[in-house]
Write a protein that binds this DNA or RNA. Structure first.
Lengths: 233, 233
DNA sequence: ACAAAAGTGTTCAATTTACACCCATGG
DNA sequence: CCATGGGTGTAAATTGAACACTTTTGT
């Protein structure tokens, strides 16, 4: 870090959230409708400004709680990247740090204190249409989520506990946008040490054989990884 | 992005670089010795502040050129993460965006305009001893580099062109900190479409059979990945 | 001839893939 | 009994790990 010219640039620092969930077998993101200029009436990712004495992750957790009423520590929350194009906010110079949050299918889309109209929208329906550079941020966050499903056990964070292996498979299919063989998927997950733990209970579906219910296991990383071969939007 | 309270926090934005190379079969990082407080005399990662009208990547390229005299566009340069702990800089509130740069073994450690004493140091020799939170940044950058070697063809960015497959293997061994089977490695690289392209020429080593020389191929991603099983520092 | 690094061949085990087949339930 | 989703079995193909062996140079 240089020491000369400490007077350089002062700027705002925003934290924006790509909160993803799987609803009705489709990958969706929480968006808000902007009620101020610029981009008034357009959809955007929820976010806010970093406060005095606050860490980046703490700011992300606070925003998440404000928008969804959920405890950030309970959800998967990870930094994606920082975005700093000089003109990304037409008002002031603002650098934004984007976070990816993974939420189970919530009964309430928004229970937060924030009065703005927030709602879930399928990725394909909003990507390319968001305010600021939020479409880029969303695309990066979705790509990150896809990678994480290959290499880690976070897919379970999309499921409310307890869940079935079929639920988990639908998460993979929605996020990767491709069908998977239910039989091989079942074995793969069940045989990966620490991915899921059986609860002993079963769930009876509308039709078909009851499925074993599981909770998340202690494993964080998948080795060997669960691989996708090609993906579609 | 919230609109209320746009007056919130104004802060400095730094861009810090973890410039990695492999020298003498060891993974090394470019560090500078600080000649101002705080952390005077201690080693730190090179970096500087974001300027008016400048993108984050442009700032990283500029800093890279200032420190090494190299063209940032010619090297592999990717964002690692943003760091924003409130007390990470004891002077002002500063958020830093860290970049990972991968350089071939340069004849000149530093040819930059910057007069500060910069030099290469083995990772293990400086990690835990750097100023600010730079040890954390460096650890994250090294982990990122290790992942990239598994999944992408960036290892070639550590080699000056042309290079032999043996050169490439030494990069993997240095970055991962583990020996690899030269015979299987050779086949793996040669059979991965677009990883390396033979130049037709050969290089005669001090001793042993001459090795075919290669350039980087067009492939960016490795599929299937080249996997490490465990790593050591 | 020997040492050393490059590169090929081969074998065995592990993994992936595709798909047949059985299980358990509601209608 | 049928439809539906859960789950096991299994055989073929692919991949990975280990290592014997050949090639090509300098000394």
């Amino acid at each position: 870090m240089a020491d000369r010219d400490r007077e350089h640039l002062l700027l705002h620092l925003a934290v924006d959230l790509a909160i993803l969930t799987v609803r009705e077998d489709v990958l969706q993101v929480l968006v808000i409708e902007r009620d101020n200029q610029p981009y008034r009436g357009q959809e955007a990712l929820p976010g806010g400004f970093l406060r005095q004495g606050e860490d980046l992750l703490s700011a992300a957790e606070r925003e998440l709680a404000e928008e969804t009423g959920l405890d950030g520590k309970a959800l998967h929350l990870e930094q994606v990247a920082a975005y700093g194009a000089p003109d990304r906010d037409p008002r002031d110079r603002t650098v934004s740090v984007a976070y990816l949050a993974i939420a189970p299918d919530l009964p309430i889309p928004v229970a937060g204190s924030d009065a703005r109209s927030a709602h879930w929208a399928p990725i394909g329906q909003v990507i390319g249409k968001l305010a600021f550079d939020h479409s880029t941020i969303l695309a990066d966050a979705v790509e990150r989520a896809r990678e994480r499903l290959e290499l880690t056990t976070v897919a379970a964070a999309f499921c409310g506990e307890p869940f079935t292996i079929g639920d988990l498979r639908k998460v993979y299919e929605a996020v990767w946008g491709m069908p998977l063989d239910p039989r091989n998927f079942n074995r793969k997950v069940a045989n990966t040490e620490g991915f899921v733990l059986p609860t002993g209970a079963r769930r009876v579906p509308e039709t078909g054989r009851p499925a074993t219910l599981y909770r998340r296991g202690p494993a964080q990383k998948l080795s060997p990884p669960l691989m996708r071969h090609s993906a579609a939007f």
